[in-house]
Structures are given as C-alpha cells and as structure tokens.
Amino acid sequence: MPAPADSVNVAAMSVGWETSERDDGYVVELTGELDISSAASVESRLMELEKRKPARLILDLTRVSFIDSTGLSMIINADGRARKRGSRLTIVSGEGVPRRILRTVGLEDRLDVIGELPAAGS
C-alpha cells in the first residue's frame, strides 16, 4: 500500500509533511509551524491516513518550531480519535519547543509522548 503523495498540498501549508511506513503504521514527520494556518490541513491529512486503520501513528514533532493552541488542539483531537479507534498515537517531541509546550499544558504525561523516534516495531 503506497503512502499518500507527500508533496501534494504541502506547498500550501506553512508546515512540511513527510510520511513513511512502518510495520505497525505510519510515521508522519512535521516540520515548521503547527499553528492556526497549518493545523487544519495537517488534521485533514492525518484523518486521511487514519482511514487506513494503522495500529499506530507516530507524529514526529522534533523539527516543529512552534505550536499554538490550534496546533495543540489538533494533537489532542488526533489522540482522541486514536483512543476511540483503539489504536495508538505517539508524539515524538524532541527536546525543543514542542516538548516545552506539551509540558506547560500538562499533556506530556497525558499523551503518548516520547523524546525520540522509536526503532521500527518497538
């Protein structure tokens, strides 16, 4: 099953989107700013990906430079959908801004947040 075309629509977003497939699902690597101008398109693309019912979706935010409340909302909503589906949403926060923001809003322990991208299958 091919991954969705990565370049499509990305140009219109202030955030970069990169998908790779793993045994248990997909890794989505975002770059740039996850804010009011990009959150909606990221969310709709995530929902497209979720239609394939992956057991696990890994949202890699290591290279995200900023997350505003809309971006947070998007992450929370994705987590909510994953729980409802019985699958798993993992956030790779890195050590920068995303981690600090997730900590500030108290989501670091509420969501499946990890520091680094896990090895395949882990």
Partner: peptide, 13 residues
C-alpha cells in the same frame, strides 16, 4: 507545578 489544560480530560492534574 505544571498542570493539565482544561476541557480535555476528566481528571486533569
């Protein structure tokens, strides 16, 4: 001490 944002989970810290 940081806490959990409101309006999302029923048991915020």
């Amino acid at each position: 001490i940081p806490g959990t944002l409101l309006g999302i989970v029923s048991d915020p810290e």
